Amino acid sequence: MGTTITFKRPDGKDARGYLANASRGNAPGVVVIQEWWGLSENIKGLTDRFALAGFDALAPDLYNGVLVPYHDTEKANKEMGSLDFLDATEQTVRGAVQYLKCNSAKVGLTGFCLGGAVTVIGAARIPELSAAVCFYGIPPEQAAKPADLKVPFQGHFANKDDWCTPQVVGAFETALKAAGKDAEIFRYDAEHAFVNEQRQQVHDRAAAELAWTRATDFFHKHLG
């Protein structure tokens, strides 16, 4: 459904991503951020699904063409560890937001795992955003504090997550409330990465569909 495009970062460098357009013109935009595996077919499929839901959707390739097989967690961890999260957010992701803003009045940001952490950073650091939806990823506070978030925020987290743990999520939610942020947090009795239907050992269709409905409703509310 979608196609690979090149777009400009704010610093003038080129970046690549997967673009899927809604059927109508002047649709709101959603930038979709990958898991630690890279720009996988699963992420491209979710980008297509956002387009079918009425959004122009763009998934930037933060690994510049590197795609890690699902079984190779060591390599995925290495790729994620070598990523400059602030540069990725403030340059590549912001460039994707600016690209969609050319045709969309409002643009939202969403991401999964690694991309969830990038979403939180973007909600604090990308001025063109209008809303953000995070799936099971929270960055260190030196990258973005809950009090720094500047747009309406929705988060989806797994109770059986040993990376973005319930304790981390609880502290994050408490800090959001203390800062008076426009935020809602949902928890699911599922594993980390429960939305990824290509990983049958963790995929939870019921939880994924409920989270999808909540996310798209949230974006339609705040983006149009």
Results as ranks from 00 to 15, higher is better:
Q198E: 14
R49A: 09
F218A: 00
G170A: 11
A208F: 06
G108N: 06
A57C: 03
R199H: 07
L223T: 05
D182T: 15
K181L: 09
G180L: 11
D87Q: 12
A53P: 07
G137A: 03
F85V: 15
E74N: 13
L223I: 06
G116K: 05
Y136E: 00
E184H: 11
A147Q: 14
Q201P: 06
L210Q: 15
Y99Q: 13
T110F: 01
F50G: 00
E191F: 13
N64C: 04
L46Q: 14
N196S: 01
P152R: 08
A206T: 13
V68H: 01
T89D: 04
D11S: 06
I5Q: 09
G137D: 03
L100G: 01
V168R: 14
E90V: 13
R49Y: 01
P127L: 00
T119W: 00
T6D: 09
A20R: 02
T47F: 03
R199A: 12
V68T: 10
V66Y: 05
D148R: 04
V93H: 03
E197I: 02
D182I: 14
Q91H: 07
T92H: 04
N103K: 14
N26W: 01
E74Y: 05
L67I: 14
N77T: 11
W37V: 00
D217H: 14
T213M: 15
K75L: 15
D11K: 09
L210R: 14
A57V: 04
A215L: 03
E90G: 07
P10D: 02
D189V: 00
F85I: 13
A22Q: 04
V118G: 10
A190R: 07
A132M: 10
Q200C: 07
G65N: 06
D72L: 01
E41Y: 00
M80G: 10
G95C: 01
A15E: 07
S130H: 14
A208S: 14
A179E: 02
A76T: 11
N103E: 13
S130N: 15
N159G: 10
Q142Y: 15
A206N: 13
P127Q: 06
K160L: 14
L46D: 09
A15Q: 05
Q91I: 06
L58M: 07
A179W: 01
P10Q: 04
P140K: 14
W212G: 00
T3L: 10
L67F: 08
F172W: 13
A59N: 09
N42C: 12
K181Y: 07
K221A: 12
T6M: 10
